[in-house]
Simulated assay, not measured.
Amino acid sequence: MAEDILKAARERALRLGFAAFRVTAPERVPDAGARLRQAIADGHHATMDWLPETADRRSDPRALWPEVRSVVMLGFNYGPETDPLALLERKDRASISVYSRNRDYHDILKGRLKEVAGLIARDTGAEVKVFVDTAPVMEKPLAASAGLGWQGKHTNLVSRDYGSWLFLGAVFSAADLPLDEPERDHCGSCRACLDICPTKAFPAPYRLDARRCISYLTIEHDGPIPHEFRKAMGNRIYGCDDCLAVCPWNKFAEVAAEQKLRARADLEAPDIADLLALNETAFRVRFCGSPVKRIGRDRFIRNVLIAAGNSAMEELAEQVRQHLADPSPMVRGAAVWALARLGGPDRIEDLAGRLPPDEKDEGVRDEWRRVTGRESADEIG
Rank of each mutant, 00 (worst) to 15 (best):
I5T: 14
R10F: 00
R10I: 00
R12M: 05
R12V: 00
P26L: 05
E27G: 14
V29F: 07
I40V: 11
I40T: 03
A41I: 02
E53W: 12
A55Y: 02
D56L: 06
R62G: 03
A63C: 09
G75I: 00
G75V: 00
G75T: 00
G79S: 15
D83M: 10
L87F: 06
L88D: 10
R90H: 12
R93Y: 01
A94C: 13
V98G: 09
Y99M: 08
S100C: 15
Y105Q: 05
H106T: 06
L109C: 02
G111Y: 04
R112N: 09
R112Y: 00
L113N: 04
L113D: 04
E115K: 10
V116Q: 08
G118L: 01
G118P: 02
I120M: 07
I120H: 01
A121I: 00
R122T: 12
R122W: 11
D123H: 08
T124G: 04
G125C: 07
A135N: 14
V137N: 08
V137G: 05
S145T: 11
A146F: 03
A146L: 06
Q151V: 00
N156K: 08
V158Q: 10
S159R: 04
R160A: 15
D161L: 11
Y162F: 15
W165V: 02
L166N: 07
F172S: 02
S173H: 03
L177M: 06
D180Y: 02
E181Y: 09
E181N: 13
G188I: 00
S189E: 15
A192G: 04
L194H: 01
L194V: 09
D195G: 12
A201L: 07
F202L: 01
R207M: 11
L208M: 05
R212G: 01
C213W: 02
Y216S: 07
I219Y: 06
E220Y: 01
E220R: 05
P224F: 15
P226Q: 13
I237M: 05
Y238E: 12
G239R: 09
G239F: 05
D242R: 10
A245F: 03
V246T: 11
C247R: 04
C247F: 03
W249R: 11
A253S: 15
A253P: 05
E258H: 09
E258F: 05
Q259C: 07
A263F: 07
R264G: 01
L267G: 02
A269T: 09
I272A: 06
A273S: 12
D274R: 15
L275F: 06
L275E: 08
L275V: 05
A282M: 10
F283S: 03
F283H: 07
R284C: 12
R286L: 12
C288D: 14
G289D: 09
S290D: 10
K293H: 11
R297I: 00
D298P: 02
R302F: 11
V304L: 08
E314C: 10
E315T: 12
Q319Y: 10
A325L: 13
S328V: 00
V336S: 03
W337R: 15
L339R: 13
A340W: 01
A340V: 02
D346H: 12
I348W: 08
P356W: 03
P357W: 13
E359F: 04
E362S: 13
R365S: 02
W368D: 08
R369C: 03
R374H: 13
R374E: 13
A377Y: 11
A377D: 12
D378T: 04
I380S: 08
